[in-house]
């Protein structure tokens, strides 16, 4: 292109700006699509949980509570001082007989129990006969079991649904929380390594 010098100087800006106007929205859409894809993939393999509300209690000692046992079971009841009596990492599990995912995670709790990890149960808003039936049918992994019928202890722990599980170190500090059923993957990738490393510490 030949012609007037100062007109030429202004010209090259135009096509590049037009290109920018074309590619900038495309880039934004591309990045958005990539994020969406990553989110869907995370949803698929379980690494992204939109309900994975971070617990406010991580790094804090467990809240104080004192719960009665489940009627008709000869399991000792559960109070906060009991959590310190094991001198090893423990698992605290909120569950209910009416909760379907609790059935899904039960074999994993049984496995923890067999491995010698103390599993302490808090039976959430449940009726004693239903809770008893559940444990008769699926086995009892709990060393101690408290009944939280009003659900107040659960609120003190920041529980927003059952099942929910916590790992506490030997000083009773909450180190990890899982909202939802403990799957075999959660077991092998999170709980077992964590309990092992906490046990060494």
């Amino acid at each position: 292109m030949s012609g007037n010098a100062d007109q030429d100087a202004a010209r090259p800006a135009r096509p590049s700006r037009r290109k920018l106007m074309l590619y900038a929205p495309l880039a934004v859409a591309g990045v958005g699509g990539l994020g969406f894809w990553a989110m869907l993939r995370g949803l698929g393999d379980g690494s992204f949980n939109p309900r994975g509300v971070p617990s406010a209690l991580i790094g804090k000692t467990a809240p104080e509570f004192s719960l009665p046992g489940v009627e008709g079971l000869d399991l000792p009841p559960l109070s906060s001082p009991d959590l310190l009596t094991f001198d090893r990492p423990i698992v605290v599990n909120f569950w209910a007989s009416w909760c379907v995912p609790c059935i899904v995670e039960h074999p994993q709790l049984m496995a923890l129990h067999r491995q010698g990890v103390p599993v302490l149960g808090i039976n959430y808003k449940d009726r004693a006969p239903d809770a008893r039936n559940f444990l008769t049918r699926h086995g009892n992994p709990f060393t101690r079991l408290g009944a939280d019928f009003p659900g107040r202890t659960a609120i003190d722990w920041g529980v927003y649904g059952v099942p929910e599980s916590y790992v506490l170190d030997r000083r009773g500090v909450i180190r990890w929380r899982w909202a939802g059923p403990i799957t075999p993957e959660v077991m092998s990738e999170s709980i077992v390594p964590l309990i092992r490393s906490l046990g060494r510490a």
Partner: peptide
């Protein structure tokens, strides 16, 4: 409530 459930 915030102490129990955090910012969320």
């Amino acid at each position: 409530v915030h102490d129990r459930y955090g910012d969320f």
